[in-house]
Nucleic acid binder design. Structure first.
Lengths: 294, 294
DNA sequence: AGAGGTTACGGGCAGCGTAAGGATC
DNA sequence: GATCCTTACGCTGCCCGTAACCTCT
């Protein structure tokens, strides 16, 4: 019997689904079948009832789960206590919203590689709602995204916030400064995708003033920047994202009567036995932003 | 990381000797080296200081030992609780004194095979002192022998007792009956080896009476029986051993003025994580004699 | 020289992924 | 038919034992 089998058993017990368990553990679904049936052979006992739609623990399986949880917890604690961080290996899949990819990500990766050189990182840059979905489906291990992941077994912690600044191309003609809300309504606005917080807020902001609002939205931050630089409209973005464009003069800050609320990013991850590396990396990332804010 | 590595680590921590650990776990010594260095590589930490005569735990090693013990205990409990006895497999080495081999052993083996059909039994019939040595050197797992095994980590429990009966060949001429001690002293006595309990007792019994005692000793029970049947002397043996010889008339019981104390057999085994099968088999054997005495 | 551990090497087996084959709704 | 799991199969890599090689007394 090995720890891996017990971990597989644990996840299958939690998820009730061989395929999902395989994805969680980065292995194929038949591998899960093999591991579980291997465990059942070894113990000479049926652990799951596979007759229904999802795999359900048998009585013996429930008994085993108690032990599996204890052993996995001890194993995790053991690794934290006695293992050298440099030798901890494995693959961690990071889900990152584009804004984070533009700002913290390089430093974060550098820091992770310093602390855990044997860890293999897989990146997945996507929009926040997709990241939340993927996290729940266990296709990624940690997500840096906007919004909470309210789901059993997941933890969400505040990561960082960005205040949004209105920016426009230098060549863009503007009626006055500071820009009034009604003037803003007559200019095309480029922003985050529909259903995102900034998009919704901006729409509600302008709605009372003008009827025909022109809002371009893109899920790609670089596209938003490019379109803004090209003078297709104005946009509200974190200053950190467009620092080089502001410095080179390709973009300029606008004063607008109304501010858009901050963009709040959280870090979300699974809490489960075997996930101690995940938690450690989440802690590392939180420590990174904390030290940078000093 | 697997349970096997932790078990290996545990035993090496206890024994401080790679070779002894290998014997305990039925594997070669280089295998122990490989397992331990594998564990050390995995954790990126030195677990043992090999500079001295025996391997000694490092600080990290001592930390690991705490976890290893807990995990192994849980693993053992897990197997007892959820595993089907029929599927428990492994190799158990039984050390058996000849008297037991003649009496309980067939029933015992039958019973073990019924209860744990997947268990592989290795037999070692030897004299009790050798069995005790082998047990301590972990060359066998359970011993059925005369005398205690007083050693840390071992348990000794009473197994069964035999009252010794004086027997002689039918054709053997005897002066009187019941036989007086002084008459007995003039007849050659065949018995257990020097330093064994019966031998010592018989010698002390006869010493005050006659000077030139003739005591033949053999560590082989069948040889003692054979010599007695051939009329080379009388012997004190458990009745159970010579029941067929008594029934066929090749031997007859003697009444002798002095009785020899009972031959007391114990079962001794290791108490350690991973040894739950050993304990279960010891319990099984005790239950067997208990049920037979009802 | 002898006891104790590591390294080297060849062989066997376990474990993996791909792909095909049931079973159940 | 779609979803989900098992079986079949070839492959890789790990783990074991034998044997030779260090190292320290």
């Amino acid at each position: 019997m090995n720890i891996r089998s017990l971990e597989t058993f644990y996840w299958l017990a939690k998820l009730g689904n061989f395929r999902a368990t395989g994805e969680t553990l980065h292995v194929s679904q038949p591998t899960i079948s093999a591991r579980i049936s291997g465990l059942e052979d070894e113990l000479g006992v049926e652990l799951f009832d596979r007759s229904g739609r999802s795999a359900v623990l048998t009585a013996k399986g429930r008994e085993l789960l108690i032990y599996a949880e204890k052993i996995l917890e001890l194993h995790q604690e053991l690794l934290e206590k006695v293992a050298d961080p440099e030798s901890i290996h494995g693959t961690i899949r990071l889900g990152v919203a584009e804004t984070i990819a533009y700002t913290w990500l390089p430093k974060l990766i550098e820091r992770i590689n310093e602390t855990y050189p044997a860890i293999n990182l897989e990146l997945d840059v996507d929009v926040s709602p997709s990241l939340a979905e993927k996290l729940i489906k266990r296709e990624i291990d940690i997500a840096f995204l906007i919004g909470d992941v309210r789901h059993e077994g997941f933890v969400t912690k505040h990561f960082c916030s960005y205040s949004l600044t209105w920016v426009a191309s230098k060549k863009m003609p503007l009626p006055e400064t500071p820009l009034s809300l009604s003037s803003l309504a007559r200019i095309p606005i480029i922003t985050y995708p529909r259903m995102s917080e900034p998009h919704t807020y901006i729409r509600s902001l302008i709605h009372p003033v003008g009827r025909s609002i022109q809002i371009h939205s893109s899920s790609s931050l670089s596209t938003i920047i490019r379109m803004t630089v090209d003078g297709m409209g104005v946009s509200a973005l974190p200053k950190e994202i467009v620092s080089s464009e502001l410095q080179s003069g390709r973009l300029r800050e606008l004063e607008v009567e109304a501010n858009v609320p901050d963009l709040v990013f959280n870090v979300a991850y699974i809490t489960a036995p075997g996930g101690h590396i995940v938690r450690a990396i989440a802690d590392l990332s939180l420590a990174l932003v904390a030290s940078n804010n000093e």
